[in-house]
Simulated assay, not measured.
Amino acid sequence: MTALDMIREDLRTLLHDKGAQTGEINADTPLLNGPYDIDSLDLATLVVTLEEKTGLTPFANGFVLFHTAGELAALFGG
């Protein structure tokens, strides 16, 4: 499973759990101010989940700017 696949799966679960609509999530999908009800706490939860699943910690030395699902996936190896 690729990092983008994990992001899709985790975002769908997160959105479903908060009663928000889901749809197509691709590499160009914006994570904030985009088509889905995702806030900064949701993103933090997503990052922690990805770190647990992959064993990677791309934010260990500080925040790395990302805007889309694809940019976040790239931080976790694609």
Results as ranks from 00 to 15, higher is better:
27 A>T: 14
62 G>W: 01
33 N>V: 08
39 D>E: 07
30 P>D: 03
7 I>R: 12
4 L>R: 11
9 E>S: 02
12 R>F: 05
29 T>K: 10
6 M>L: 14
40 S>K: 09
41 L>A: 06
49 T>S: 05
38 I>E: 01
45 T>N: 14
6 M>Y: 05
55 G>A: 07
24 E>L: 14
22 T>N: 09
52 E>M: 08
28 D>W: 02
34 G>P: 01
69 A>E: 09
77 G>W: 00
25 I>F: 01
26 N>L: 06
39 D>G: 02
55 G>H: 03
47 V>W: 05
46 L>V: 05
71 E>P: 09
59 F>H: 07
47 V>Q: 10
61 N>I: 07
12 R>M: 11
53 K>C: 00
52 E>R: 08
16 H>Y: 13
78 G>D: 12
56 L>P: 00
40 S>A: 06
10 D>F: 12
20 A>R: 14
63 F>R: 14
35 P>C: 07
45 T>R: 13
33 N>I: 05
33 N>F: 04
33 N>D: 14
71 E>K: 11
76 F>Q: 14
49 T>P: 00
12 R>I: 15
69 A>P: 14
55 G>K: 08
41 L>I: 13
21 Q>Y: 11
63 F>I: 15
48 V>L: 13
19 G>F: 01
56 L>E: 07
47 V>I: 13
68 T>N: 03
15 L>I: 13
25 I>Q: 02
5 D>C: 12
4 L>M: 06
1 M>R: 14
22 T>M: 08
31 L>S: 02
8 R>D: 12
55 G>C: 09
20 A>H: 07
30 P>E: 06
5 D>I: 15
70 G>K: 05
75 L>M: 03
65 L>R: 13
77 G>K: 03
43 L>C: 01
23 G>W: 07
67 H>P: 00
49 T>I: 11
77 G>T: 11
39 D>W: 01
37 D>H: 09
15 L>T: 15
34 G>S: 01
55 G>R: 10
75 L>F: 01
67 H>N: 07
41 L>T: 14
6 M>T: 13
15 L>A: 12
49 T>H: 03
21 Q>N: 15
42 D>E: 07
36 Y>M: 09
26 N>H: 12
31 L>E: 04
43 L>S: 03
40 S>G: 09
13 T>Y: 02
63 F>H: 15
23 G>Y: 06
70 G>E: 06
42 D>S: 12
72 L>R: 10
7 I>C: 05
72 L>M: 03
22 T>S: 14
10 D>V: 10
22 T>Q: 11
61 N>K: 13
62 G>A: 03
41 L>K: 10
66 F>H: 01
14 L>N: 06
32 L>P: 05
40 S>R: 09
2 T>Q: 08
20 A>V: 15
41 L>V: 15
51 E>F: 02
70 G>T: 09
69 A>Y: 10
50 L>V: 14
21 Q>R: 11
51 E>G: 01
45 T>P: 03
54 T>G: 02
44 A>G: 07
50 L>W: 10
62 G>E: 02
30 P>G: 00
8 R>H: 05
2 T>F: 01
53 K>D: 04
75 L>H: 03
58 P>G: 06
11 L>I: 12
74 A>L: 08
15 L>E: 15
9 E>W: 04
52 E>V: 11
63 F>D: 14
35 P>M: 12
57 T>W: 04
58 P>R: 08
38 I>C: 03
9 E>V: 10
75 L>S: 07
31 L>D: 05
74 A>S: 12
